[in-house]
Design a protein around this nucleic acid. Sequence first.
DNA 1: AACGTAGTACTACAAGCGGAGTGGTGTCAA
DNA 2: TTGACACCACTCCGCTTGTAGTACTACGTT
Lengths: 190, 190
Amino acid sequence: MRSNPERRQALIDAAIEVLARDGARGLTFRAVDAEAAVPPGTASNYFANRDDLFTQVGGRIYERLLPDEATIARSREGLQDETRYAELMHELVDRISAFNSGYLALLELRLESTRRPELRAVLTKRIREDIDANIGYHAASGLPGDSTSVVLVYLALNWLIVERLTLPDIFTQQEIHELVDAAVRRSLNP
Amino acid sequence: MRSNPERRQALIDAAIEVLARDGARGLTFRAVDAEAAVPPGTASNYFANRDDLFTQVGGRIYERLLPDEATIARSREGLQDETRYAELMHELVDRISAFNSGYLALLELRLESTRRPELRAVLTKRIREDIDANIGYHAASGLPGDSTSVVLVYLALNWLIVERLTLPDIFTQQEIHELVDAAVRRSLNP
DNA sequence: AACGTAGTACTACAAGCGGAGTGGTGTCAA
DNA sequence: TTGACACCACTCCGCTTGTAGTACTACGTT
């Protein structure tokens, strides 16, 4: 088992692209090799088996979907009211939709996790942490709304992104925009 | 190309199970044959190619996820208020979660549709029709809420089901119940 | 009632593809 | 010199497809 960290990371990032493009079943050592443009057989040296590959990808992908620190810092500026909240959610949807393959790969991982207990454990932990972090961050930010509203917005936006990425003709850009606004506004009233 | 309708339907239903269990890439003629317990080569005779198989499954699966007529009839009874609305949504979530493999298969199809234009067209049409039907049905039912609230509930419940089916430990049964209630209640606020 | 025919079920085969895993060799740096 | 890694090549294996050929069954015809 090799341990060159940059190479390992490059392989994992390549695996994310493969997942998004070819699906979970298409995630093979050889496909990762090809995507990362390294000689065939390389991925075999970095991951014990496919299960290992899946869990390592599961551990990494979530980091790449989260906002970078500059974005977080920026989000704390200005008046923290409902309008600002909606603005932040628009940015969130755009950011995640932009990293198209990352989100699709995460969906593939979710589906694959019905077959791989280890992967499911990793994803459950990551996602539960993320939800809790969102709730905590929200409470500290001064934005309006309670924990239930945070979760409701999380639910609605996730499916909205699924819709946008998998069947882009269901909702127009305009409708998506309005739905984000509505999700924020309506979730706030208890 | 054979045309025995029961057999074709049995093959498509088998394909749904295969999709849910093995993913889109695992949906091969042979796997369908095995799942349907028919001799190998049979599926080859009923579908021109894999693309054809995918689109036929896409056309059928949605029917199986919709409520049967008895359920629809029952939903029209009683006082059509917010409590009743929540009750109907609980039933919806339970019903879809119960047909586990159907929903997972639909997710697999959505992901696969990023690679198959024909399938995407079929799914887009079906789902758009379903959303519109929901809106129309809702308007006629006397239940509270406008079209935006219907779509918001649709979004939230879909992701809630994804969460429940793919990572069941994220939310407890209790939390899911409360989230359905909250989604209905809050979506009604204009 | 016997026959013929069409459609379907079943079986078998040939060929190809793609992946896994591993072992050997070259290379670089400590 | 030694150890870790990159690269390359080779073998084995499993699975899928597509089709051709044969057997069966039901139905309509005479």
